[in-house]
Design a protein around this nucleic acid. Structure first.
Lengths: 146, 146
DNA sequence: TTATTTCTCTACTAAATCGGTAGAGTTTAT
DNA sequence: ATAAACTCTACCGATTTAGTAGAGAAATAA
């Protein structure tokens, strides 16, 4: 399962994607609109800023805003930031590779093969979903509901 | 990430798949051969028995054995048993569905759409991998190494 | 029938992670 | 100078993970 941090981060980024670009949005506003505990959200937005995804401005008229266009931020990037590896076993992780401690022979491990495929599928899907794509999806879903 | 319990369970099942069927194998043997802590493995095998995947026999000549043919046990089943939902968010889980607490509108949630696709891909891959398929994969990998 | 073998069950525990909260500090605009 | 905002450090309770300990029950063999 994904952590709440990741889910909150994705929601906050969707919210920011909807705004007029470069206009800073208050933590407070995102917190109430998206129902994310404010203090927790603070930490999340800070991490997104340190990762170069968001920019911030202090003082009156301050807040957070997207640094990159929404076409260049995807779900894989965000999830890796907050949850670490996307892979289900460390030995097939890309950015966070580690041998499985209890593994006897990585090269001939059939479990590894399966999880390698799953990781590739998952990462591909997450990368396809940039934040503008997510907005598009939401619009489509809202049309269908009517 | 998958838990060690799941990984150990899969390894133990692969080991049992390799044995002459219906011949019980000692916990001790699986533990030393697959390098799984014995006491921990006991709990795992017990759970597999309660799930109807393994049978057991007590006393001398006892041990654990597969109850179903290896073509009818797959990785999805095992992982669900030990780790619960395969989905990355509860709202797209199949066997373990729960609404996301912080979700405002499930029907128009674009995040949900993405995770629904990922869950479908992952489950399909895990289901394809029955234990006889895993054995086959291992054989192929061993051939290639030579 | 008694000893031995082997699985079964309950209870505990140490460490890590998750999902936060508290509060002081720093920067910027007015 | 003051108020508005983000920034940073430190903490905390609950849950989960990865085990361990030890007694019990059933089956077999002597």
């Amino acid at each position: 399962m994904i952590t709440k941090k990741s889910k909150y981060a994705i929601k906050a980024l969707i919210y920011l994607t909807k705004q007029e670009k470069s206009k800073p949005v208050l933590i407070e506003e995102i917190s109430t609109e998206e129902k994310i505990p404010k203090k927790f959200l603070e930490a999340i937005l800070l991490e997104l800023r340190k990762a170069g995804i968001l920019g911030s401005k202090k003082g009156k008229g301050g807040g957070y805003y997207l640094l990159k266009p929404a076409t260049e931020i995807n779900m894989a990037e965000v999830m890796r930031l907050f949850d670490g590896a996307i892979a289900l076993v460390p030995c097939v992780a890309h950015k966070y590779y580690e041998p499985c401690e209890e593994c006897i022979d990585e090269i001939t491990c059939p479990i590894r093969e399966v999880f390698r495929v799953i990781r590739e599928q998952t990462v591909a899907t997450l990368k396809d979903n940039t934040f503008d794509e997510l907005l598009l999806k939401e619009k489509k879903l809202k049309r269908y509901r009517k």
